[in-house]
Design a protein around this nucleic acid. Structure first.
Lengths: 199, 199
DNA sequence: CAGGTTACAAAGCTTGATACTTGTAACCAA
DNA sequence: TTGGTTACAAGTATCAAGCTTTGTAACCTG
């Protein structure tokens, strides 16, 4: 039976997202995806080397979207770096909270990837660290932050806010006080960053 | 058959620790503990209401030991608060790393408790927060730290160092760079705490 | 020959009978 | 009456059976 509309990677990706949403990350199978597309599951393997690769592609799609959303905040020179850093950190938390609420299945799929040490997850962290470093470098440039190594400082800020972005804490993000907690940590960190040059 | 040496809670506790070490937290059963003591498992239930209670007692024993170790550091007025805070945070990490290395089974038992929202775990966190607040209050008293609420600041510092004490990150504590990471976060936090009074 | 098909092997996952664990009850001894 | 016993019900873990799922191979078609 010939394919009338030739399948492409994007079509498969969209169907996979849909199946993941419906069935959940544990129950979703490659056969389900193929059935949704009206093809045999072997056809899917012509486009993706493995189920893992398919999962990674779906996750990467979401993470790329996140990265772009956050990049807009990070690059907004109209906002002073201190304010921008605070807003950005809140946004990192917010996009993840929203995903958990709206697409718990896809979020869980991301968790599975991160646990498997996929490069998709580590690449994403590197991306975020770059955005953070850029905000900090802006602050250093306009004199509002003091740092002699924006990347090292970005890492320290990232580690200090792990509770608000690391997957291991996802359960705590439901807690209503989480926003306030992040705010308090931001304030403390900003005081450290903004401190006048010390000895 | 009469008991020659009457069983007491401490004896059971010691035997339980031994069994947990040998069998691991998943395989260790109340029957195992009883067998090690040469009694029936029902005898153990005369002293502990449930297996959960037994597990909590063992964990509390270790946490109390930790608390005391850390309290010595927190209360050492000979060390300036900034240095003391840094040392204390490193010690919190170190005692957990040591436990994972030496008693992975008991450490896992603690993890199970924390996940079950046992008060043993939350009490311990409250203890640690108290010690942290005491160090910060000392710093406020001698002018080296600026804060108008030592407890709130303690919470912020605790959240900012979650990566270095929260169980969810235990796997990362094996990473050789973890000590340096904590040091960088400490430096940033101390700069925030030590900043001269801002507007 | 890119992109589809069916067929099939190996690995992984349910399932349900069986055995172990937990917790309780009724009873006994110093 | 405290602290032990044995016996047992209810809830869980285990394990081998078969069924799914993954991934590959050999083959077809515009």
């Amino acid at each position: 039976m010939p394919a009338r509309v030739p399948l492409d990677a994007n079509t498969i990706l969209a169907a996979t997202e849909e199946i993941l949403r419906r069935h959940g990350p544990d129950k979703a199978t490659v056969v389900d995806v193929a059935r949704a597309l009206g093809v045999s599951h072997a056809a899917v393997y012509k486009h993706f080397a493995s189920k893992q690769a398919l999962r990674e592609a779906v996750t990467r799609h979401w993470l790329d979207h996140n990265r772009d959303t956050l990049a807009v905040i990070a690059a907004d020179r109209a906002v002073p770096p201190a304010q921008r850093l605070r807003t950005w950190l809140h946004a990192v938390l917010a996009v993840k909270q929203a995903k958990i609420r709206e697409d718990p299945e896809l979020f869980a799929a991301y968790g599975i990837l991160a646990a498997a040490h996929s490069t998709v997850a580590t690449d994403h962290v590197a991306d975020l660290l770059g955005q953070l470093a850029a905000i900090i470098a802006d602050g250093a440039a306009d004199g509002s932050f003091r740092t002699d190594d924006a990347e090292a400082t970005a890492r320290a800020v990232f580690h200090a806010t792990a509770k608000f972005h690391h997957l291991a804490h996802a359960a705590e993000w439901q807690n209503p006080g989480i926003g306030t907690e992040l705010d308090e940590v931001c304030t403390l960190l900003l005081e450290g960053l903004q401190a006048p040059t010390s000895p």
